[in-house]
Design a protein around this nucleic acid. Structure first.
Lengths: 253, 253
DNA sequence: GAACGATTCAAACAATTGTTTGATTTTGCA
DNA sequence: TGCAAAATCAAACAATTGTTTGAATCGTTC
């Protein structure tokens, strides 16, 4: 479940042989492969997940991957875009809605942060679209070192990233472009590697547990995440306190 | 250069055959291998750096690695600890000095941040001990997905990490342990993945260029990094502004 | 039920990996 | 100079990788 047959390839280049699965007794081979791929990708990443491991996990023949998907890369491209496209769409939708309604002048940064992270929290709560492992999946995807994965993400979601960067720039006009760029870099890298780490996700689960309504849970997580991230984005450079602290430490060098 | 023969293995288990290199005409084979390993590790990471690539880069025979170092893992363990041990020592030394002198009550967080990051900036300025590529090396090491690298770092530098966590906890008594833990997680993950990324390091170089004294350069970088990190650590949870921002965004869901 | 395409399967392929072997060369010391 | 240890070398090894092949099987349709 989760996966099903509506896997129309989003890549023109990735057109695969289409056909209605005809056996009813067991889940279609393609679906089993996709599910196994997602499961093993979360654990091991792209490079370390072999086609033999996938086909064994799925209980299908090794050649089935190349037959149904063409290649390992095409298979993983489908798995990645299937999950991440909905995340991206939802993020942009929230950003659109906020821009249409007009930001709350005082809390623009907090609203942008909420628009960035609420969709992931929601997807993690929807078993059909990722479930609890969705955050793990997301972290893996953005932390994966394989050039193939990195280029796929960069190419496919660059436009969305740009829109958020521009929105943050507008909300923080006093911050130099250099500093904003560095801080957003930090923020996004932190999010993704944190999502990939087991204990950090446990922490977030613990925070969520302070409420019992599911919408309230998301709000609880954001109430802890948001100020932390907003605080970092709003901080002013060259504070005297920082200057003094640096001098004190430099004295020991 | 940089590397030389004082490669006494820090691991009892990793004792390698010791011997004074006897050929003078060219750099000793062991040294060439170590240098090539470091160079390729920075570019490709542990898994994707093959022994054949290393020995080709070093201009030595393929079997030389197993002959001189025993295995690929033992070779990389030497390269990693060689660089990271000095960083760790210097960090702890600064922390000791600060604790001995007594922290500046008002700026403890800033001082701790400086103690964490100054050593890396210094090493990056010392050609003998890493040079400009040291930050790249550091980022790679902490972002590397290989279980071998992750366990090596966790086992070897856990004690140092704990000391810093405790110092931060003391400096931020009003912050719940959960939140502090999450924020430090974010902070360290952000630092390492940022160091590994090309454009983020360019940004830091640009910041450093605003001064010409080399000590001043480090201070300049810290003046931009510090407030950003301190701001994130000091932020208070459950701010009304954050709560309102979350409500506004949740309305669109 | 014959025929045909879609699917599955075991097997092999070519390429790459870390490691080992055994002969050969180089080196330092007697 | 002679000799033994150390170092280098080409070659092979065993294991793993993604991919391809060609025959066997399955399902549908005529």
């Amino acid at each position: 479940m989760g996966f099903d047959m509506q896997f129309g390839s989003p890549f023109p280049a990735l057109k695969i042989r289409e056909r209605e699965p005809r056996n009813e007794g067991r889940v279609a081979t393609k679906t089993r492969i996709l599910a196994a791929t997602e499961k093993l990708f979360v654990i091991h990443g792209f490079d370390a997940t072999s086609l033999r491991a996938i086909t064994t996990e799925a209980g299908v023949n090794l050649a089935a991957v190349n037959y149904h998907f063409g290649s390992k890369e095409e298979l993983f491209a489908l798995v990645l875009t299937h999950r991440l496209d909905s995340l991206s769409l939802e993020r942009v939708r929230l950003l659109d809605a906020l821009e249409a309604k007009g930001f709350d002048a005082e809390y623009t940064v907090e609203q942008l942060i909420a628009a960035m992270f609420l969709p992931a929290l929601q997807l993690a709560r929807n078993p059909e679209r990722g479930g609890a492992d969705f955050l793990k999946f997301l972290g893996r995807a953005y932390a994966d070192p394989s050039p193939f994965v990195r280029e796929l993400l960069a190419d496919r979601y660059a436009a969305q990233d740009t829109r958020f960067v521009q929105a943050f720039a507008k909300a923080l006009p006093e911050l130099a472009a250099q500093d904003l760029s560095m801080r957003l870099h930090f923020m996004l890298d932190a999010i993704s590697s944190t999502l990939a780490s087991e204990d950090a996700r446990k922490l977030m689960a613990a925070l969520a547990a302070t409420s019992n309504d599911s919408v309230e849970e998301d709000a609880a997580v954001l109430a802890h995440l948001g100020p932390f991230l907003a605080g970092s984005l709003r901080a002013k450079v060259n504070q005297p306190s920082q200057q003094r602290a640096i001098r004190a430490v430099l004295a020991f060098v």
